[in-house]
Design a protein around this nucleic acid. Structure first.
Lengths: 249, 249
DNA sequence: ACTTGAAGCTGCCGCAACGGCAGCCTCTAT
DNA sequence: ATAGAGGCTGCCGTTGCGGCAGCTTCAAGT
């Protein structure tokens, strides 16, 4: 008893195209190929196809399926399935993280996507970066920052308004002049940057590095820094050096 | 101020190849292309690249990214992100289902992958299909089946041992003769099949259809039925007719 | 015997997002 | 003048087929 490709297709639910493909890659070779080139499948092939489709439903790739069907012992089949399961779990977790990131991005766009760049560094409260900050460093840090702002002196407020701007301008010049990120002149500006930041909150070494990366990652920060977006990378690298030298983990 | 492709690559962390690709598909066109064909990017492009990379990290496809960047309003950006989030959640759930299926398949292979085909229909207990059955119809049904087996009479046991075999043989003949699945002669055999099955448990219409599909899906069942695997499809179709006509949902 | 429709066949392109060549060109520095 | 670094344009490969085009073959009806 043997079946034509269309019969097998009807019976198994896959298309004839798929069967030809499986033949082409050697996954399911017909029992017999007639002189006119037509494929004929016997019951053996149908059973193999059934196993292929089972494994395919589990999400295995065709080469992994070929692997399982090649070695007949159950032990290695279980191993392949275990590996596959582990992969599925990792993927699932990754998607979960993506969902959370997308959610926080939606929040971000909703609340502050429209904000003008020049307003970026005007403080934390009702600021679109609040969500970002809470996401990155937790509620306690942000709330502590608010508390601190309430106790600012006049010079503190002045420093907060103009401090970052001065840092960015000087850094752009220093970078243009070819200064390395670990040069003293650069690190002095980072020192100022750190002091201004400390008006809001006291970053750990890790958080400070995270802030530097945020400048690079987030277009709104980068735009606010300067006409030259590569200054963000430069700033981040310099902040990393500063964290290495002055902050403890 | 403009940057060469290598500078942009270093600064952004993507490869030059990727930047050329983005140019090729029109996602990120350099500000200027020199007479010698070299690409030069300005700050505007760097900012756009940054947004591209943010969206890419969220798992969006490049065309979706282009879409978001094209329409500048926040409303439609949020819509795209919401759709993307919904997709991520669906994918995550799908992977979760796959994990469970793989787990039950592993169980199945571990416990019964070696079983000889002729032993397939010898009852449920310590049978590799037990896991399958519990997966499909729940513990209550399987446990009730065991209870029922304990009360079998001698003729019941005989019927259980030989009943399925007779059904399969007759069906193969009827199929070869060209009988339709709704023909009386076929449905009489399905009636017997249903009676034998009822020795173990009383399937609802849905469960009976599920059992039919299982014959088609699982190679071990198909092998056990007959040398001709298409009989499984035939049996399933006939069982569906029987369920339609005699069983209520 | 002839025609026609259904089914089969073999390529080849396309998808997503690039990686990795090959082969050639160009710039800068010594 | 030469060398090395960086740039360029194709083109193939990845995964699992779908969807053609263009040709052949088969079974059935007239």
């Amino acid at each position: 008893m043997s079946w034509s490709i269309a019969e097998v297709a009807r019976d198994s639910g896959v298309t004839a195209r798929t069967l030809r493909h499986y033949h082409a890659i050697g996954l399911l070779v017909p029992e017999r190929i007639a002189a006119n080139g037509r494929r004929y499948y016997a019951s053996q092939q149908l059973l193999r196809l059934q196993r292929i489709l089972l494994l395919r439903e589990l999400g295995l790739g065709l080469d992994a399926i070929a692997d399982v069907l090649a070695r007949q012992d159950n032990q290695s089949t279980v191993e392949v399935l275990e590996r596959h399961k582990a992969w599925l779990l990792r993927e699932q977790q990754r998607l979960g993280r993506l969902v959370r990131t997308v959610e926080s991005t939606i929040e971000n766009v909703r609340s502050g996507g429209e904000m003008a760049p020049e307003k970026v560094f005007e403080g934390f409260e009702h600021n679109p970066y609040e969500a970002e900050a809470r996401e990155r460093w937790g509620d306690a840090v942000v709330d502590a920052g608010y508390e601190r702002m309430r106790n600012w002196s006049g010079t503190d407020a002045e420093k907060a308004r103009t401090g970052y701007g001065r840092v960015h301008e000087r850094l752009a010049v220093l970078k243009a002049e070819g200064a390395e990120v670990h040069d003293l002149s650069v690190q002095e500006m980072i020192q100022l940057h750190y002091e201004v930041t400390s008006l809001f909150w006291t970053p750990t070494a890790e958080a400070y590095r995270g802030l530097g990366q945020l400048y690079v990652d987030d277009a709104r920060f980068t735009e606010a820094i300067n006409a030259d977006p590569t200054v963000a990378t430069y700033l981040r690298d310099a902040m990393n050096v500063y964290a290495d030298e002055h902050l403890s983990d």
